[in-house]
C-alpha cells in the first residue's frame, strides 16, 4: 500500500484482497485495535492502580505503541528504508516486552506472594547476565531486521547468533544451577533455554530457505515465509522471556554488596 494512515485512500474500507494487501491491511487493522486496547489499559491502570511506577509503565506502553505506529507510517511513506523498518521491528518487540511486564506485575502471584530472596555474590551477577542477554538479543533483533530489509548482509546476524547462544546459555545455566529452587527464576530460565534451541533451528531453516535455496526465487515462497515469520515470532518470545527472567532475578536474586551487607548474604528478611 503506497499511502498511510489511509489504505488506498480509505481508513477502514476493506480493499481488494490481493497478494500482500491482505497481510498489510490486516496488520494495520490489528495495529489500530492494539492502540485502542493499550489506551484502555493505560486509562484503567491510571484509575485503579496504586503503584505509581506501574501507572508510568502503562503510559510508557501507550507512548511506545504510538511511536511504533509512527515508525510504521514512516516506513511506508519513505519507501521502507532499512533503518526505519528495522526500528519499526525493534520497537514492536519493545512494546511486546512492556505488555508482558505489565501482565507480570499485575498478576496475582506478583501482587500476593512474599518473594523468596537469595543474595547473589557471584560475579558477574545473574542480574548482569540477564541484562547482557537482553542487550545481545536486541543487537540480534536489529541485525536480523537490517538483513530482512536488505540493509545488511546475512553474516553479522549469523555471527551474533553465536554470541547470543553463548550469553543466553550462560545465563540460563547459571540460573538453573544456582537458583533452581526459586520457581520464578527456574521457569523462565528453562523456557529461555528451550526457546533458544528452537530459535537456532528456525534460524537455520530460515537461512536455508531464504539465503541458500531462495536466492533466485522470483517471489516469496511458502517455506521461506513460514520459516522467517516463525523465526521472528520465536525471537520476540525469547526477548520477552529474557525480560521476565531479568525482572524475576532482580526481585528474587538481588546482588549482594559486601561493604553494605557483610553478614546478610543468606538473610532473606533484608528484602
Amino acid at each position: 500500500m503506497p499511502d498511510w494512515p489511509t489504505s488506498f485512500g480509505y481508513l477502514i474500507k476493506v480493499p481488494h484482497f490481493v497478494g500482500g494487501v491482505r497481510f498489510e491491511w490486516t496488520h494495520r487493522m490489528l495495529a489500530g485495535s492494539l492502540i485502542t486496547l493499550t489506551l484502555a489499559i493505560a486509562f484503567w491502570t491510571l484509575l485503579v492502580e496504586r503503584r505509581r511506577w506501574l501507572r508510568w509503565l502503562a503510559i510508557g506502553a501507550f507512548c511506545t505503541v504510538i511511536a511504533q505506529a509512527v515508525l510504521g507510517g514512516l516506513t511506508v511513506l519513505l519507501f521502507q528504508p532499512p533503518a526505519v523498518s528495522t526500528a519499526h521491528a525493534a520497537v514492536a518487540q519493545t512494546f511486546f516486552c512492556i505488555a508482558v511486564a505489565i501482565a507480570l506485575f499485575t498478576g496475582r502471584r506478583w501482587v500476593e506472594e512474599q518473594p523468596r530472596v537469595e543474595f547473589d555474590q557471584r560475579r558477574p551477577s545473574l542480574f548482569t547476565l540477564t541484562l547482557l542477554s537482553i542487550f545481545v538479543l536486541y543487537v540480534q533483533l536489529i541485525l536480523g531486521g537490517m538483513f530482512r530489509h536488505h540493509g545488511m548482509s546475512w553474516w553479522p546476524h549469523v555471527l551474533n547468533a553465536v554470541v547470543v547462544s553463548f550469553v543466553l546459555a550462560w545465563t540460563a545455566v547459571r540460573a538453573l544451577t544456582a537458583y533452581s529452587q526459586i520457581e520464578a527464576v527456574r521457569r523462565p530460565a528453562i523456557l529461555m533455554l528451550s526457546l533458544l534451541i528452537a530459535q537456532l533451528c528456525l534460524g537455520f531453516t530460515a537461512f536455508l530457505t531464504r539465503v541458500a535455496w531462495g536466492r533466485t526465487a522470483v517471489q516469496p515462497e511458502l517455506p521461506m515465509v513460514i520459516a522467517t515469520v516463525t523465526h521472528v515470532a520465536v525471537g520476540a518470545l525469547l526477548l520477552a522471556t529474557a525480560v521476565i527472567l531479568a525482572i524475576q532475578v532482580w526481585r528474587h536474586v538481588p546482588v549482594a554488596f559486601e561493604e553494605r551487607l557483610p553478614q546478610a548474604q543468606h538473610d532473606p528478611s533484608v528484602a
Binding site: 533503518a83 528495522t86 526500528a87 542480574f127 541484562l131 537482553i134 531479568a246 532482580w250
Partner: peptide, 23 residues
C-alpha cells in the same frame, strides 16, 4: 542495580534511535 537496569534499557533504545537517524 535496579536503576542500572533501567539506564541500560534507555541507553539501548537511544542507540537504536541514533542508528535509525544516521541511516
Amino acid at each position: 542495580t535496579g536503576w542500572a537496569g533501567i539506564t541500560f534499557v534507555v541507553v539501548a533504545l537511544c542507540a537504536l534511535l541514533v542508528l535509525a537517524a544516521c541511516s
